[in-house]
Amino acid sequence: MLRVRLYLQSVIKFILKYSSLAIVILLTACTEPDCIDKGGEFIGIGFYDEQTGEVEEIRINSLQLEGIDSLLASEVDNVAAVILPINPDTDQLTAYFDTEFGRDTLVIGYERTVSLISEDCGAEIIFNSVSIVRNDFDSISVVNTSTELNFLDATSFNENIRIFN
């Protein structure tokens, strides 16, 4: 038993003395995370019938965002949902809706979170805590406060807000 232990000790000492460099090189190789950017850049808004709660297709005469001169949409029929591009430099987005139900203003608030994924992938910006700051609609609700992308269902529409007419 003693002989075995002494043998083990001598093996350990040999490894320490003569193989340190190789082990150091092997074990210092670091791993970097995959380049998966979950940051969504849009806020999704769906239109619903206030009576039935079903999806409703409406006519949009015009849709404009404060800070962008051109219209996002003009004279479009049968619109069930729209997506609004988030301004990464501010924490609010003001949208002007002109629909078959009248003219309404919607101010949406959000919080920006920045994180570095890796040197290869760069930084990721995620917008969360979506909220309604001010609006003129009869009925409106936030159904999802996150704009993060859902990679499990590529066809799904990331709906944040529901407007009931």
Partner: peptide, 18 residues
């Protein structure tokens, strides 16, 4: 700390710091 630039099709390019 991080300083980064954003390239957005709608809002243009900008630099930010956190």
């Amino acid at each position: 700390e991080i300083s980064f630039t954003t390239n957005n099709d709608f809002w243009g390019n900008s630099t930010a710091f956190e």
